[in-house]
Amino acid sequence: MFNIAGKSYAMNVITPVRWYLAWLNKVIFYAALKIPSTLSGLITLSLIHYARWVIIGRNQFPHMAPEQPREQLKYSYMLFFSNFNGSWDQYVDSFTFSIPGGLDMFWKWNVRYSKSVALTPFHRYIQYNQLETQHYYNAYPLAASNDVKSAKTVKAALIAFDQELRKGTDAEFLARYNTLLRGLQHDMGDMYPTPIVSMAAYQLERRHQRHERQLQELKAAASEGGV
């Protein structure tokens, strides 16, 4: 199993909801979508690439063949999937510190939810209900969500800047270039080497180093073969 891919961590949490309350939870998610301020904490935290909440009615587990036994569940279930940057502790802690109300709003309909404050019971609640990821793929393991967003800003700015490359004197060019730099002053952070945020991330880094050596060997073998 591996929960980490580069700068991202895959969290899966499954928690029971009383089936007759599941609709209420859906209403709250719907409201969250429609009332942007409810998500402003999440947006400001800026630690998430993508996250989702899925509510599975107790009769809604996929049934794909007659020979598959039917589920006979007493509860409905809420699945939470998140792709976040940083370590498990950082993520869970940042959430409870900054948006405890939002967490409670989403989870309080779940059986035996701990509430987000105090921290230790909340940690235990998440740990208890977490499902480990077997295989995690990330198209941009070197990038945090902030990097992806700032890259978009950089790209747009460079494309716009290209339009005027040849206009005016050199001095005018330099002034425009300096304005470009000023506009991108929060978007120039490096993305490599990836920091080690946990002992698991250290293991992952070692695996990548091994792969890197394998790749080099393959390349070397290929070029020898070519001669």
Binding site: K7, A144, N146, H186, G189, Y192, I196, V197
Partner: peptide, 15 residues
């Protein structure tokens, strides 16, 4: 780890 040797929380990437 996060604030001295890494800069993501400050919108500074790895700086």
């Amino acid at each position: 780890q996060q604030w001295i040797n890494y800069g993501n929380d400050f919108k500074a990437g790895n700086d």
